[in-house]
Structures are given as C-alpha cells and as structure tokens.
Amino acid sequence: MTKTFVVAEMALREIARRRGVLAILLIFPLAFYLSRRDSHAGQSIRFVCLGIGWAMSTAALFAGSAARAVEPRLRLSGYRGSHLYLGRLAALWTVGLLLSAPYYVLIRIDQEHVRYGAIGLIMLLTVAVAAPFGLALSAALPRELEGMLVLLIVVGLQMMMDPADSASRLLPFWFSREIGTYAVDHTDGGYLTRGLIHAAVCLAALLAVVAAASGYRLRQRSHLRFVARR
C-alpha cells in the first residue's frame, strides 16, 4: 500500500508541475460545453463529459508514456507492476475528479430541469474509464503521436456515430451518451442501466489490458533468477 501511495504521490507531483498542460486540460472541456450551449443544452452536457474524457485520456496517455523510462528501474527497486499502474491510476483519477468538479458546479448553475445526480455519475464514470483508457493506449502505442491520433479517432467517432448503432457500443465512452440521455431527456431507467453496465464492462476490460500490458512489459524474465544471499 505504501508503495502504491508513493507512486501516486509522485505521479500527482509530476502532473501538478505541468502547469501548461493542466491549464489546457481544465479549459478543454469548456470549449466542448460552450460549442453547443446556445443551440442544445442537453448536447452541451454530453459534450462536456466527452471533453473531460478526452482530456483525461490524453493526460493518462502522456503520463503512461513518460513513465516508461523509469518503470523498469522501479521494478528492479522492489515495486511490482501493480504498484506502478495502480499508483498512477490513483493519481489520474484524483486529477480527473478535481478537473470535473468545476464543470459539475457549472452545470448546476447553468442548466435546469436535468438530473444532476446522473450528470455527476457520468463525470465519475468518465474519469474512471478515461484514465485506464489512456494508460492502455500508452501501453499499446509507445509513441505519443500515434496514441493521440487513436484518441482523436475514438472521440471523433464518439461524436459522429449514432448511439443507437450497435457498433457505437464498442466505443469506451458510449455510456456517457446513454446516461446523458437519461439525465437530460428524463427517459426511463433502462438508459441508466445500460450505461452503467457499459461503463463497468469498459472499466474492467481496460483495467485488465493495463494490468496485462504492465505485467508483460515489467515481467521478470525467465533467464534471471534471484537467489537468496549466502
């Protein structure tokens, strides 16, 4: 636990020192929100959640890429792969919650006749899914540019695809549209249930990918044997 906590603390310190990135992360979802605020309030809520997801995935992608150089030596220093990715996830989730909080307050002030609890839930789930999504991308695509392009494609598809299309359920943030509909259009609980199930499945799958990738990359190779000191 101490090791995971120290990794989380150091990851938070690293993120906190990237002030320019933090500022962009904070403003980025606002652009999404304002882009649809005048024409369709409900869409602006869905868009701001997507913006948070994109921003957090990007932050996780870069955090994961930056960690690649130091993680092998940390593994040799006594950390397990799980200490490293859980610590990093904890830091990213913390940043995500702090990033989402002002947008939740904004919606509380700026929007009426919506289910605020459900909107809070979307933000929570978006942050939960976005962090492992970015880390999974950084594990699969070591070069940041490639990871960014994939993120761009995913978020672009998320905006363009019809949520009723079954293929769109393969996208990691599909649940935000579904729960968003429940929150904004006051639909029945089926939307909420489907959204929750989708988020849970995505979260579990992405965590499994992150754990497997970390386990593989930082595995103890079979040729190396540690023998107790004589």
Partner: peptide, 14 residues
C-alpha cells in the same frame, strides 16, 4: 538486469 531476454543462457543474482 532482466530487462532484455537472451536467446540462451541464465543469470543468477544472489
């Protein structure tokens, strides 16, 4: 250090 796999051989660290 166990960061690269060899094709053959073994390393023992006490």
């Amino acid at each position: 250090a166990g960061l690269v796999s060899p094709d053959r051989g073994e390393v023992r660290v006490h």
